[in-house]
């Protein structure tokens, strides 16, 4: 069974082919919290460790894979206008 990553390396696609892994904190069908927590963690991580701290990108990868674009856009505007409900 050829996996996507193997085939991709053959074709030399520049992007890294991976997705948000299984997270034992969210073992249920409901993954809403996984998306939300990843978004909050990403921005908290960047606030604490600085904008260029590479390991923060793990959280970005997770929320980008899981959250609908519309949600991320909404939260981004909320953060810009300082009315984001989460603790960052």
């Amino acid at each position: 069974m050829p996996s996507l990553a193997v085939m991709a390396s053959k074709k030399e696609v520049p992007q890294e082919l991976s997705t948000a892994p299984f997270d034992p904190r969210f073992p249920n069908q409901n993954q809403t919290r996984y998306c939300w927590q990843s978004y909050v963690d990403y921005h908290r991580c960047r606030k604490l460790k600085g904008e260029d701290y590479a390991p923060c990108d793990y959280f970005r990868k997770c929320y980008e894979s899981l959250c609908p674009f519309a949600w991320v856009e909404k939260w981004d505007t909320q953060r810009e206008e300082n009315r984001f409900p989460g603790k960052i």
Partner: peptide, 14 residues
């Protein structure tokens, strides 16, 4: 059916 076996990609449908 509940199991997700290390998915290689995620798609979203709305």
């Amino acid at each position: 059916m509940d199991e997700i076996h290390n998915p290689i990609m995620t798609i979203k449908t709305i």
